[in-house]
C-alpha cells in the first residue's frame, strides 16, 4: 500500500474542499482499502467522510425514498421503509457480500465500487481501466465472470454491485454535491459504459460527493424482488441476477421495472423485457416470452457463453417469483 495522508472532515464544505484538492473520499472503505493494498488504487490523500450527516433514510415529498449516501448496507436493508416499499433493494443488499462487509460498506460506496475483474486487480496484467492503453487481458483471458452486455474493445469487466441493479431497475436518482453546488443524476447516466474510456466509471466531476440515492414513488402495490445466481449459496458475486418490480392492477401489468446484474459493464436495464410485459396479464408464458429478450445484444466471450441462456432463465424465474404464475 502506498503511503497517504489522512484527514477526517466534519462537514460537507470541508469535504468538498479536500476533495477539490485531489483528496479521495473514503466511506466504508471495503473496496478502496482492498484495492489500495493491491496497489490498484494509490490515493495520496484519504478524506474520511464518515462524520458527514448523510445517514438518513427519508420519505420524499412525492412518496419516494431517499437513502443517505453514508447509510450502511446493513442499515438500509433492515430499514422498515425499505423493506416494505422496495423489497428488491433489501434483498439485493442482503444477498451482497457478508454480514460484516454490509456493516461497513455504505450505499454511496456500494454504487462506487469497482469491478472484480481479476486482471484489473492484478497490477501486473494489462488493463485499460486501471492503466489506459495497457490493453485488456480479460478479453482473451479467463473471462467466465465477465460481461456479455455493454462491453467494448477496451473493457469487458462486470459491474459487481447488486443494489445498483435494483437502483437501475427502479430508475433511481443519484444526488451529488460539488464545488459548483448540488445536482441530480439519473441512475442510468451515473454509471458509465466503458467505451474507449473504461477508466471513467461514474459521471462525477472532480471533488463531487454523493449525498443520497433517491428511489421514485411507484403506484401501489408494487411487488418486487431480487434473484441472484451464483456458484455457492452465499458470499459471492453474481453470475447473473435480476431485479424485478411489477405493479399489477386489475389483473394487468401497468408498471414493469427489470434490470440484470452480473452480465453488464454497468447494471443492465432491460427495456425490451419491460415493454413486453406492460399491458399484459401475468402468466408463465408471458414470463418466458418476455425473458427471451433479456440477453438482446449480448456479446459473449470464450468462458461466459453460458450467461446468455442463464440470464434469460434468471429473468424468467424472477418474473415468476415476483409476478406469480396466474
Amino acid at each position: 500500500m502506498y503511503p497517504f495522508t489522512f484527514t477526517k472532515v466534519s462537514d460537507t464544505a470541508e469535504a468538498l474542499n479536500a476533495g477539490h484538492r485531489g483528496g479521495r473520499y473514503i466511506a466504508g472503505g471495503t473496496t478502496l482499502v482492498d484495492l489500495m493494498r493491491e496497489t490498484v488504487e494509490r490515493p495520496e490523500t484519504l478524506v474520511d467522510i464518515s462524520a458527514l450527516p448523510l445517514r438518513g433514510v427519508t420519505v420524499t415529498e412525492r412518496g419516494g425514498l431517499r437513502i443517505g449516501a453514508l447509510v450502511r448496507m446493513a442499515e438500509a436493508a433492515a430499514h422498515a421503509k425499505v423493506r416494505t416499499t422496495y423489497p428488491v433493494i433489501s434483498e439485493a443488499l442482503e444477498l451482497s457480500a457478508s454480514a460484516q462487509l454490509r456493516n461497513m460498506a455504505t450505499i454511496g460506496g456500494n454504487i462506487m465500487q469497482r469491478t472484480r475483474c481479476t486482471y484489473f486487480r492484478d497490477v501486473t496484467a494489462g488493463c485499460n481501466k486501471r492503466e489506459p492503453g495497457s490493453g485488456c487481458a480479460a478479453r482473451d483471458g479467463f473471462n467466465r465472470t465477465h460481461a456479455i452486455l455493454g462491453t467494448s474493445d477496451a473493457c469487458v469487466a462486470t459491474h459487481p454491485s447488486d443494489v445498483a441493479v435494483a437502483f437501475a431497475a427502479l430508475q433511481a436518482t443519484v444526488h451529488v454535491v460539488g464545488p459548483d453546488g448540488a445536482r441530480s443524476i439519473p441512475f442510468a447516466d451515473f454509471l458509465l459504459r466503458p467505451g474507449s474510456t473504461p477508466e471513467r466509471e461514474q459521471a462525477l466531476q472532480k471533488g463531487e460527493l454523493i449525498t443520497a440515492v433517491e428511489i421514485p414513488a411507484f403506484p401501489r402495490p408494487l411487488k418486487s424482488g431480487y434473484l441472484k445466481v451464483r456458484d455457492r449459496q452465499s458470499y459471492e458475486f453474481a453470475l447473473t441476477s435480476a431485479a424485478v418490480a411489477l405493479h399489477v392492477r386489475g389483473g394487468v401489468i401497468r408498471e414493469a421495472k427489470v434490470a440484470a446484474g452480473g452480465v453488464g459493464t454497468v447494471p443492465w436495464k432491460l427495456p425490451a423485457v419491460e415493454k413486453h410485459l406492460i399491458g399484459e396479464r401475468p402468466s408463465q408464458a408471458l414470463w418466458a416470452e418476455a425473458a427471451k429478450h433479456a440477453a438482446d445484444g449480448a456479446r459473449p466471450l470464450e468462458h461466459n457463453r453460458f450467461k446468455v441462456e442463464l440470464l434469460k432463465r434468471t429473468v424468467e424465474r424472477q418474473l415468476r417469483i415476483v409476478g406469480g404464475t396466474k
Binding site: 472484480r116 501486473t124 483471458g141 479467463f142
Partner: peptide, 22 residues
Amino acid sequence: DHRDGRIVNADLANYMVPVNAD
C-alpha cells in the same frame, strides 16, 4: 491463464470454497 502461466483466481473471493450456507 496459459498465455503467461498466471493464476487468475488466486484469492478466496474467486477460488470458491464452501461457505456455511452451502
